[in-house]
């Protein structure tokens, strides 16, 4: 983690923190500073994470965002982004989430990787990822934005820890060498109704390629993906809005099911 946090990064980090304190989204950073760069946005994210670590939180993994062509088009970008997963973001499979922990959540179905070996950039390939992966699991990611009405540009979501919220791991651990990750089918349900379907290839053509991108991107920041880390590799279908009282589940071929409730408030 960076030793020196710039005044600007600290200020913008505090701005986003207001959203959590006030319980409502704040102005996007890109409207406070239209010139903010991607590098500066990551510095804001790292500043926020550093503060959380200082209060005793622990990094348990990373998430990759903007992995679908549709999302990249929406934000006008041609590459993914990433955020940090902390120990207090973990929700048990089938558990109920208090809606007060969230601002404007959406749910996505994904494949989670758990590493058995460190992955160190800059030349990590999708094959390296599969060989370094202990197992994969089905996951629900509850994304959220500290920015008002999800009015995000690329820099906004990067600064906001890639719009991370909470995440749920389910199913059973499966070795990535036992399955073809690119062709795994996924069905996402809200309250028992099918919302959409997807397939592994929705994440940059191959979820393992997303993890490889992450390892190589982290190299720029001097960060290593460590054995034991959980990596959410990217949504397999469009994110679905969550309301109080909703029940979400996803079924993934070979990997099983993962589900979560939102309390009715």
């Amino acid at each position: 983690m960076h030793d020196l946090i710039s005044e600007k990064a600290a200020r913008f980090s505090a701005h986003l923190e207001q959203a959590e304190l006030m319980g409502q989204g704040v102005e996007p950073l890109t409207s406070l500073d239209p010139q903010i760069t991607i590098k500066e946005a990551y510095e804001v994210q790292l500043a926020t994470i550093q503060k959380k670590l200082d209060t005793g939180r622990r990094v348990v993994g990373k998430k990759i965002g903007l992995t679908s062509i549709a999302m990249q088009k929406l934000l006008g970008v041609d590459q993914p982004d990433y955020g940090h997963l902390l120990d207090d973001m973990v929700v048990g499979n089938g558990e109920t989430i208090s809606f007060s922990r969230l601002l404007q959540p959406k749910v996505e179905g994904e494949i989670a990787f758990v590493l058995k070996r460190d992955l160190i950039g800059p030349n990590v390939s999708a094959l390296d990822v599969i060989l370094a992966t202990d197992f994969v699991l089905p996951a629900l990611e509850i994304v959220d934005s500290r920015v008002k009405d999800w009015q995000i540009k690329l820099q906004d979501t990067i600064a906001d820890n890639a719009s991370s919220g909470l995440f749920v791991l389910g199913g059973k651990p499966v070795k990535p060498t036992d399955i073809d990750l690119t062709q795994i089918g996924m069905v996402l349900y809200r309250n028992g109704e099918i919302m959409n379907t997807g397939v592994g290839a929705a994440a940059l053509g191959n979820p393992a390629a997303c993890v490889a991108w992450l390892a190589n991107k982290l190299f720029e920041f001097g960060i290593i993906l460590r054995a034991g880390e959980v990596i959410l590799s990217g949504a397999l279908s469009a994110a679905v809005n969550a309301e109080p009282g909703d029940h979400f589940s996803a079924r993934l071929a070979h990997l099983g099911e993962v589900s979560v409730h939102f309390n009715p408030v």
Binding site: T182, G185, V187, V199, G200, A201, A202
Partner: peptide, 20 residues
């Protein structure tokens, strides 16, 4: 219902989904 399907034209994924 969980069979993943990708439809490609000239090697580029154009659409995808599962049996469901």
């Amino acid at each position: 219902d969980l069979i993943g399907v990708t439809l490609l034209i000239n090697g580029h994924t154009r659409d995808l989904g599962a049996g469901a």
